[in-house]
């Protein structure tokens, strides 16, 4: 079981959360980026071996959205929201 740090509730079981997808990079400037850059932005999902930046929703708890850095090898949360309790 993963304990996810919620900024409102503190550490809670992952079963109270819904995965909200990876944090994507900023939208590129359409006047500057090329086709390859657009395809990468639109279709490439970050899937590193190691820390990945993710959105989670505390859907069965307080309803807050948060982002964490989770290590895909160990499920360790290497960095939580800055104001997590």
């Amino acid at each position: 079981m993963m304990l996810i740090p919620c900024p409102f509730c503190g550490n809670r079981s992952e079963s109270e959360f819904a995965y909200g997808g990876p944090v994507k990079p900023d939208r590129p400037d359409s006047h500057v980026t090329d086709d390859e850059g657009w395809v990468a932005f639109l279709t490439t999902v970050p899937n590193p071996v190691g820390p990945v930046h993710e959105h989670w929703w505390h859907v069965k708890g307080c309803g807050a959205w948060l982002t964490i850095w989770r290590d895909t090898r160990t499920h360790d949360i290497v960095e939580g929201p800055p104001d997590a309790g």
């Binding site: 809670r12 079981s13 079963s15 109270e16 069965k60 708890g61 309803g63």
Partner: peptide, 25 residues
Amino acid sequence: CPLDLHEAAFPEDAVSFTEFFGQKA
């Protein structure tokens, strides 16, 4: 319910949404 229900973590005035048998509670 996965909540820590010990008095130290969940005292008399505590109230929280969590899950119970898989449902929000």
